[in-house]
Amino acid sequence: MEVRTIKVFTTVDNINLHTQVVDMSMTYGQQFGPTYLDGADVTKIKPHNSHEGKTFYVLPNDDTLRVEAFEYYHTTDPSFLGRYMSALNHTKKWKYPQVNGLTSIKWADNNCYLATALLTLQQIELKFNPPALQDAYYRARAGEAANFCALILAYCNKTVGELGDVRETMSYLFQHANLDSCKRVLNVVCKTCGQQQTTLKGVEAVMYMGTLSYEQFKKGVQIPCTCGKQATKYLVQQESPFVMMSAPPAQYELKHGTFTCASEYTGNYQCGHYKHITSKETLYCIDGALLTKSSEYKGPITDVFYKENSYTTTIK
Protein backbone atom coordinates (compact mmCIF):
# COMPACT_ATOMS: atom_id res chain seq x y z
CA MET A 1 0.00 0.00 0.00
CA GLU A 2 1.47 3.33 -1.03
CA VAL A 3 1.69 6.19 1.47
CA ARG A 4 -0.30 9.16 0.19
CA THR A 5 1.47 12.45 0.83
CA ILE A 6 1.12 16.15 0.10
CA LYS A 7 3.64 18.95 0.29
CA VAL A 8 3.04 21.80 2.75
CA PHE A 9 5.11 24.51 4.44
CA THR A 10 5.64 24.98 8.17
CA THR A 11 6.65 28.27 9.76
CA VAL A 12 6.83 30.18 13.03
CA ASP A 13 7.05 33.65 11.44
CA ASN A 14 5.47 33.40 7.95
CA ILE A 15 8.84 34.52 6.53
CA ASN A 16 10.98 31.40 6.80
CA LEU A 17 8.94 28.60 5.22
CA HIS A 18 10.08 24.99 5.71
CA THR A 19 9.02 22.44 3.07
CA GLN A 20 7.41 19.32 4.55
CA VAL A 21 6.10 16.15 2.95
CA VAL A 22 3.20 15.01 5.15
CA ASP A 23 1.61 11.60 5.44
CA MET A 24 -2.13 11.91 4.77
CA SER A 25 -3.00 8.98 7.05
CA MET A 26 -1.66 10.67 10.20
CA THR A 27 -2.84 13.86 11.93
CA TYR A 28 -0.79 17.06 11.83
CA GLY A 29 -0.33 16.69 15.58
CA GLN A 30 1.30 13.27 15.16
CA GLN A 31 3.69 14.77 12.62
CA PHE A 32 4.41 18.28 13.97
CA GLY A 33 2.79 18.69 17.38
CA PRO A 34 0.38 21.67 17.75
CA THR A 35 -0.40 23.00 14.24
CA TYR A 36 -2.43 26.01 13.06
CA LEU A 37 -3.89 27.08 9.73
CA ASP A 38 -5.02 30.74 9.62
CA GLY A 39 -5.26 30.68 13.41
CA ALA A 40 -7.45 27.56 13.45
CA ASP A 41 -6.09 24.62 15.45
CA VAL A 42 -5.69 21.69 13.00
CA THR A 43 -3.61 19.52 15.35
CA LYS A 44 -6.18 16.70 15.42
CA ILE A 45 -6.95 16.92 11.68
CA LYS A 46 -5.45 14.73 8.94
CA PRO A 47 -3.97 16.40 5.84
CA HIS A 48 -6.40 16.99 2.99
CA ASN A 49 -5.74 17.47 -0.76
CA SER A 50 -6.87 21.08 -0.43
CA HIS A 51 -3.98 21.68 2.01
CA GLU A 52 -1.36 21.17 -0.73
CA GLY A 53 1.09 24.10 -0.75
CA LYS A 54 -0.51 25.81 2.27
CA THR A 55 1.49 27.31 5.13
CA PHE A 56 0.97 26.00 8.66
CA TYR A 57 2.15 27.58 11.88
CA VAL A 58 3.89 25.17 14.24
CA LEU A 59 5.42 25.72 17.67
CA PRO A 60 9.17 26.42 17.81
CA ASN A 61 10.17 22.90 18.82
CA ASP A 62 13.69 22.75 17.37
CA ASP A 63 16.72 25.06 17.48
CA THR A 64 16.19 26.51 13.99
CA LEU A 65 12.57 27.41 14.73
CA ARG A 66 13.43 28.72 18.18
CA VAL A 67 15.94 31.17 16.69
CA GLU A 68 13.47 32.24 13.99
CA ALA A 69 10.69 32.74 16.56
CA PHE A 70 12.92 34.76 18.88
CA GLU A 71 14.18 37.00 16.07
CA TYR A 72 10.63 37.72 14.93
CA TYR A 73 8.67 37.98 18.19
CA HIS A 74 11.48 38.83 20.68
CA THR A 75 10.09 36.37 23.22
CA THR A 76 11.12 32.93 24.43
CA ASP A 77 7.75 32.22 26.09
CA PRO A 78 6.86 28.69 24.85
CA SER A 79 3.12 29.45 25.09
CA PHE A 80 3.33 32.66 23.02
CA LEU A 81 2.69 31.29 19.52
CA GLY A 82 -0.25 29.13 20.60
CA ARG A 83 -1.84 32.09 22.38
CA TYR A 84 -1.25 34.30 19.33
CA MET A 85 -2.91 31.72 17.06
CA SER A 86 -5.97 31.19 19.26
CA ALA A 87 -6.44 34.98 19.47
CA LEU A 88 -6.04 35.27 15.68
CA ASN A 89 -8.80 32.70 15.22
CA HIS A 90 -11.17 35.31 16.75
CA THR A 91 -9.62 38.61 15.59
CA LYS A 92 -9.70 37.49 11.92
CA LYS A 93 -13.52 37.45 12.24
CA TRP A 94 -13.71 41.02 13.57
CA LYS A 95 -14.50 43.96 11.29
CA TYR A 96 -11.96 46.78 10.94
CA PRO A 97 -13.73 49.85 9.51
CA GLN A 98 -11.89 52.99 8.45
CA VAL A 99 -13.29 55.75 10.66
CA ASN A 100 -12.18 59.32 10.01
CA GLY A 101 -9.01 58.08 8.28
CA LEU A 102 -8.09 55.65 11.07
CA THR A 103 -8.46 51.87 11.35
CA SER A 104 -10.93 51.04 14.13
CA ILE A 105 -12.56 47.80 15.33
CA LYS A 106 -16.29 47.15 15.26
CA TRP A 107 -17.41 46.24 18.77
CA ALA A 108 -17.23 42.50 19.63
CA ASP A 109 -15.93 40.38 22.54
CA ASN A 110 -15.26 43.37 24.87
CA ASN A 111 -12.66 44.65 22.39
CA CYS A 112 -13.32 48.38 23.01
CA TYR A 113 -10.01 48.75 24.90
CA LEU A 114 -8.16 47.26 21.90
CA ALA A 115 -9.97 49.60 19.50
CA THR A 116 -8.95 52.58 21.64
CA ALA A 117 -5.33 51.40 21.83
CA LEU A 118 -5.25 50.73 18.06
CA LEU A 119 -6.67 54.19 17.27
CA THR A 120 -4.16 55.84 19.62
CA LEU A 121 -1.18 53.99 18.14
CA GLN A 122 -1.99 55.42 14.71
CA GLN A 123 -1.66 58.96 16.07
CA ILE A 124 1.53 58.80 18.12
CA GLU A 125 5.03 58.22 16.79
CA LEU A 126 6.15 54.75 17.81
CA LYS A 127 8.45 52.10 16.36
CA PHE A 128 8.21 48.53 17.62
CA ASN A 129 11.29 46.39 18.26
CA PRO A 130 9.89 42.94 17.40
CA PRO A 131 9.55 42.74 13.58
CA ALA A 132 6.29 40.82 14.19
CA LEU A 133 4.68 43.86 15.84
CA GLN A 134 6.09 46.38 13.37
CA ASP A 135 4.97 44.33 10.32
CA ALA A 136 1.49 43.77 11.78
CA TYR A 137 1.26 47.46 12.73
CA TYR A 138 1.87 48.54 9.11
CA ARG A 139 -0.84 46.12 7.96
CA ALA A 140 -3.20 47.43 10.65
CA ARG A 141 -2.75 51.01 9.46
CA ALA A 142 -3.74 49.79 5.98
CA GLY A 143 -6.92 48.27 7.42
CA GLU A 144 -5.85 44.65 8.04
CA ALA A 145 -5.56 44.66 11.81
CA ALA A 146 -6.38 41.03 12.74
CA ASN A 147 -2.73 40.00 13.26
CA PHE A 148 -1.86 43.15 15.16
CA CYS A 149 -4.80 42.73 17.57
CA ALA A 150 -3.95 39.05 18.09
CA LEU A 151 -0.31 39.95 18.80
CA ILE A 152 -1.34 42.64 21.30
CA LEU A 153 -3.44 40.04 23.13
CA ALA A 154 -0.55 37.56 23.13
CA TYR A 155 2.03 40.11 24.36
CA CYS A 156 -0.39 41.32 27.07
CA ASN A 157 -1.22 37.76 28.16
CA LYS A 158 -4.90 38.42 27.47
CA THR A 159 -7.55 36.21 25.92
CA VAL A 160 -10.34 37.34 23.58
CA GLY A 161 -13.44 38.41 25.53
CA GLU A 162 -11.55 39.42 28.67
CA LEU A 163 -11.99 43.02 29.83
CA GLY A 164 -8.90 45.10 29.25
CA ASP A 165 -7.34 48.37 30.32
CA VAL A 166 -5.92 50.85 27.80
CA ARG A 167 -3.14 52.09 30.10
CA GLU A 168 -2.01 48.55 30.92
CA THR A 169 -2.13 47.58 27.23
CA MET A 170 -0.10 50.63 26.19
CA SER A 171 2.41 49.94 28.94
CA TYR A 172 2.97 46.38 27.62
CA LEU A 173 3.32 47.69 24.06
CA PHE A 174 5.71 50.47 25.09
CA GLN A 175 7.97 47.79 26.58
CA HIS A 176 8.27 46.37 23.04
CA ALA A 177 8.82 49.77 21.42
CA ASN A 178 11.99 51.74 20.80
CA LEU A 179 11.87 54.40 23.50
CA ASP A 180 15.65 54.42 24.08
CA SER A 181 15.99 58.13 23.36
CA CYS A 182 13.08 59.11 25.64
CA LYS A 183 14.01 60.97 28.79
CA ARG A 184 12.13 62.80 31.56
CA VAL A 185 13.57 64.91 34.38
CA LEU A 186 11.30 65.61 37.36
CA ASN A 187 11.79 67.90 40.33
CA VAL A 188 10.09 67.40 43.69
CA VAL A 189 10.05 70.43 45.99
CA CYS A 190 9.12 70.17 49.68
CA LYS A 191 9.28 73.14 52.09
CA THR A 192 10.74 70.84 54.77
CA CYS A 193 12.97 68.46 52.78
CA GLY A 194 14.20 70.72 50.00
CA GLN A 195 14.26 69.52 46.39
CA GLN A 196 15.13 66.31 44.63
CA GLN A 197 15.60 65.66 40.92
CA THR A 198 14.90 62.33 39.23
CA THR A 199 15.70 61.25 35.68
CA LEU A 200 13.50 58.62 34.02
CA LYS A 201 14.24 56.74 30.80
CA GLY A 202 12.24 54.57 28.40
CA VAL A 203 8.64 53.62 29.26
CA GLU A 204 8.67 55.58 32.53
CA ALA A 205 9.69 58.69 30.62
CA VAL A 206 6.49 58.76 28.52
CA MET A 207 3.80 57.65 31.03
CA TYR A 208 2.47 59.49 34.07
CA MET A 209 -0.33 58.42 36.42
CA GLY A 210 -2.01 61.07 38.56
CA THR A 211 -3.11 63.91 36.30
CA LEU A 212 -4.50 64.21 32.77
CA SER A 213 -3.24 67.73 32.11
CA TYR A 214 0.23 68.00 30.60
CA GLU A 215 0.14 71.76 31.27
CA GLN A 216 -0.57 71.10 34.95
CA PHE A 217 2.32 68.61 35.04
CA LYS A 218 4.63 71.34 33.71
CA LYS A 219 3.39 73.83 36.33
CA GLY A 220 3.43 71.32 39.18
CA VAL A 221 1.20 68.70 40.79
CA GLN A 222 0.68 68.18 44.52
CA ILE A 223 2.03 64.90 45.90
CA PRO A 224 2.52 63.69 49.49
CA CYS A 225 6.18 63.94 50.55
CA THR A 226 7.87 61.12 52.51
CA CYS A 227 7.94 63.51 55.51
CA GLY A 228 4.12 63.66 55.47
CA LYS A 229 3.80 67.24 54.18
CA GLN A 230 2.60 68.23 50.71
CA ALA A 231 5.26 68.54 48.02
CA THR A 232 5.13 69.84 44.44
CA LYS A 233 6.34 67.69 41.57
CA TYR A 234 6.95 69.34 38.21
CA LEU A 235 8.44 68.53 34.83
CA VAL A 236 11.93 69.95 34.28
CA GLN A 237 12.73 68.32 30.95
CA GLN A 238 10.95 66.06 28.46
CA GLU A 239 12.53 64.44 25.39
CA SER A 240 10.05 62.18 23.56
CA PRO A 241 7.72 62.18 20.53
CA PHE A 242 4.63 62.00 22.80
CA VAL A 243 3.51 61.78 26.43
CA MET A 244 0.67 59.77 27.95
CA MET A 245 -1.08 61.28 30.98
CA SER A 246 -3.46 59.06 32.96
CA ALA A 247 -5.72 59.28 35.99
CA PRO A 248 -8.71 57.34 37.34
CA PRO A 249 -11.71 58.19 35.10
CA ALA A 250 -13.21 61.55 36.09
CA GLN A 251 -15.16 64.36 34.43
CA TYR A 252 -12.64 66.28 32.38
CA GLU A 253 -12.93 68.94 29.72
CA LEU A 254 -10.96 68.39 26.53
CA LYS A 255 -10.18 71.58 24.63
CA HIS A 256 -9.81 71.38 20.87
CA GLY A 257 -6.22 71.73 19.67
CA THR A 258 -4.60 71.17 23.07
CA PHE A 259 -4.14 67.38 22.85
CA THR A 260 -3.76 64.58 20.28
CA CYS A 261 -6.24 61.96 21.48
CA ALA A 262 -7.79 60.56 24.65
CA SER A 263 -9.54 57.52 26.16
CA GLU A 264 -12.98 57.89 27.71
CA TYR A 265 -14.06 55.22 30.19
CA THR A 266 -17.67 54.85 31.34
CA GLY A 267 -18.66 52.32 33.97
CA ASN A 268 -16.91 50.75 36.92
CA TYR A 269 -13.92 48.48 37.46
CA GLN A 270 -15.85 45.25 36.76
CA CYS A 271 -17.71 46.45 33.74
CA GLY A 272 -17.21 49.47 31.55
CA HIS A 273 -16.76 50.79 28.05
CA TYR A 274 -14.00 52.72 26.27
CA LYS A 275 -14.43 55.35 23.57
CA HIS A 276 -11.73 57.28 21.75
CA ILE A 277 -11.65 61.08 21.42
CA THR A 278 -9.43 62.62 18.76
CA SER A 279 -8.63 66.26 18.07
CA LYS A 280 -8.57 67.01 14.32
CA GLU A 281 -10.15 70.11 12.74
CA THR A 282 -12.78 69.57 15.43
CA LEU A 283 -13.25 66.93 18.16
CA TYR A 284 -14.34 63.45 17.10
CA CYS A 285 -15.52 60.58 19.26
CA ILE A 286 -14.92 57.10 17.83
CA ASP A 287 -16.86 54.23 19.38
CA GLY A 288 -16.06 51.08 17.40
CA ALA A 289 -17.52 51.80 13.95
CA LEU A 290 -19.47 54.88 15.12
CA LEU A 291 -18.29 58.46 14.68
CA THR A 292 -19.69 61.61 16.29
CA LYS A 293 -18.25 65.11 16.18
CA SER A 294 -18.44 68.06 18.53
CA SER A 295 -16.67 71.36 19.10
CA GLU A 296 -16.28 70.76 22.83
CA TYR A 297 -16.16 67.71 25.04
CA LYS A 298 -16.60 66.91 28.71
CA GLY A 299 -16.71 63.36 30.02
CA PRO A 300 -15.07 60.59 32.06
CA ILE A 301 -11.53 60.70 30.65
CA THR A 302 -8.79 58.36 31.86
CA ASP A 303 -5.87 58.86 29.40
CA VAL A 304 -4.77 61.86 27.34
CA PHE A 305 -1.99 61.73 24.74
CA TYR A 306 0.00 64.80 23.72
CA LYS A 307 2.53 65.32 20.94
CA GLU A 308 5.93 66.40 22.24
CA ASN A 309 9.46 66.74 20.98
CA SER A 310 11.57 68.58 23.48
CA TYR A 311 10.55 70.66 26.50
CA THR A 312 12.61 72.44 29.15
CA THR A 313 11.06 74.26 32.11
CA THR A 314 11.35 78.00 32.68
CA ILE A 315 10.73 77.53 36.43
CA LYS A 316 13.81 78.74 38.27
Rank of each mutant, 00 (worst) to 15 (best):
Q238C: 01
C193Q: 02
H276M: 08
Q197I: 07
L151Y: 05
G164P: 00
L17T: 00
M85Y: 11
T11S: 11
P300Y: 14
L59G: 08
S104P: 04
G202A: 07
R83W: 06
Y137W: 09
L114Y: 05
E125H: 10
S279K: 00
D13F: 04
D180L: 03
V243Q: 00
Q230E: 11
T91R: 08
E68C: 05
A117P: 00
L102W: 15
Q134F: 04
T314G: 14
K201H: 15
E253Q: 07
R83E: 05
Q31A: 14
Y72C: 10
G202C: 06
V3L: 13
V185Q: 01
N178Y: 04
Y234C: 01
V243D: 03
T312R: 15
G194N: 02
T314F: 14
F305L: 00
E68T: 09
P241D: 07
E52Y: 09
E162M: 05
K46I: 10
K307D: 10
W94H: 07
F259Q: 05
P300G: 00
E68R: 09
Q123P: 05
L235C: 05
T282E: 11
V12S: 08
L119E: 03
R141P: 03
Y269P: 11
K201N: 11
G299V: 01
K54C: 15
V160P: 12
Q20E: 12
V243N: 01
G53E: 14
T282D: 05
K233I: 14
C149Q: 00
M170F: 09
L17Q: 12
T64H: 10
D41H: 10
E2V: 11
V221S: 03
G210D: 00
V243H: 02
K54F: 13
M207N: 06
E215Q: 09
K7F: 11
V99N: 07
D41C: 10
F70N: 14
Y214E: 13
I286H: 01
K275M: 02
H48D: 15
K54I: 12
P34K: 15
A262T: 04
F148E: 06
P224W: 10
A205E: 00
T169L: 10
Y208H: 10
Y84Q: 02
I6C: 13
L114M: 08
L291P: 01
W107C: 03
Y72K: 11
D62P: 08
Q20P: 03
M26T: 15
L291W: 14
T120K: 04
N187T: 07
I277W: 14
T27L: 12
P60G: 05
R141W: 08
F128A: 02
A142G: 14
V166Y: 12
R83K: 11
Y234L: 06
E308F: 08
H74T: 09
T292V: 09
V221L: 12
V185A: 06
E125Q: 14
F32H: 01
S310A: 11
